[in-house]
Design a protein around this nucleic acid. Structure first.
Length: 264
DNA sequence: CCATATGTTAAAAG
DNA sequence: ACTTTTAACATATG
């Protein structure tokens, strides 16, 4: 589930993990914690505490304090399905929230145990999430929530690839994922396959407005699955606006749904 | 067994 | 050299 809105909600949960003494860390999953060998993250942070939680696009990181000094940043990426769990609680989204039984201990890929008995966990069935020290978040483009209209026009409207591919490119702007891209393009009535440099300025402005409103709505309502068109991303569904059928294909390397009539 | 999945990235292709 | 597309990644689920 994690696109920008889910990650922002996860960051809210992360805040409950701040300013608590770290008693131990389980960083034994060397796939999720790569390139750190087991024990390395623990050695760097045990005895310290997390002091702030940040987000850029889909990447989160915590500032830390260890023995009175600034420690390394703790970067967390939720990958395709990860969730933050603090003291057994997740945010308003996620399988546990909707289906409390679907949770196995072995799906906790990284755990920070606090001296007060609580914990911070990365729950991630698919193991595509990542935890690492001092992540390079400068490689990302501007966050989708704070990018300006001018920046958006310049960055997204450049190049000859499909506009959806531009929206998904995290170096162009950070935070848009597959569902949000479909939602945004549908809101703006733009075909996902349109070459980015063929979009007129008014199209890009409309796309920008759609992105910002979709983002805001998704954060307010609990995730990208609450989008207007997201529930209609399946065969034999009709466009909720015009009733025309929904088309399916691969754009930007991802499964894509769009309205046959309004998005051409 | 096959296809699919809300992400990233290395490798290949253009 | 730079841009764009594809394949692979690990794992669960229908």
């Amino acid at each position: 589930m994690p696109e920008l809105p889910e990650v922002e909600l996860a960051r809210t949960v992360l805040r409950d993990a701040l300013h608590r003494e770290i008693a131990s860390i389980d960083d034994n999953d060397d796939w999720v914690c790569r390139p750190h060998p087991p024990g390395q993250i623990a050695a760097a942070l045990v005895g310290g505490e997390l002091t702030a939680a940040h987000r850029r696009g889909k990447t989160m990181w915590c500032e830390t304090s260890v023995r009175g000094d600034a420690g390394p940043e703790l970067g967390i990426h939720l990958g395709m399905g990860g969730q933050i769990v603090v003291d057994g609680k997740v945010g308003p989204t996620g399988p546990e929230h909707r289906n409390p039984g679907a949770r196995k201990p072995e799906w906790d890929r990284f755990t920070v145990n606090f001296a007060d008995g609580g914990s911070l966990r990365l729950f991630d069935k698919r193991r595509l999430g990542r935890v690492r020290l001092d992540p390079d978040h400068e490689a990302l483009g501007p966050d989708a929530e704070v990018i300006t209209r001018d920046e958006f026009r310049t960055r997204v409207g450049r190049g000859h690839s499909a506009v959806k591919a531009r929206l998904l490119d995290q170096t162009v702007l950070a935070g848009v994922g597959n569902l949000l891209a479909d939602e945004t393009l549908w809101q703006a009535s733009i075909s996902p396959a349109t070459p980015a440099d063929e979009l007129r300025p008014k199209d890009l402005d409309r796309l920008y407005d759609s992105l910002e409103s979709s983002l805001k709505a998704a954060i307010a309502h609990g995730g990208v699955h609450t989008g207007e068109v997201v529930p209609y991303r399946n065969a034999d569904a009709a466009c909720p606006r015009c009733g025309s059928h929904m088309l399916h294909g691969t754009v930007g390397g991802r499964s894509t749904w769009w309205c046959a009539k309004e998005q051409r």
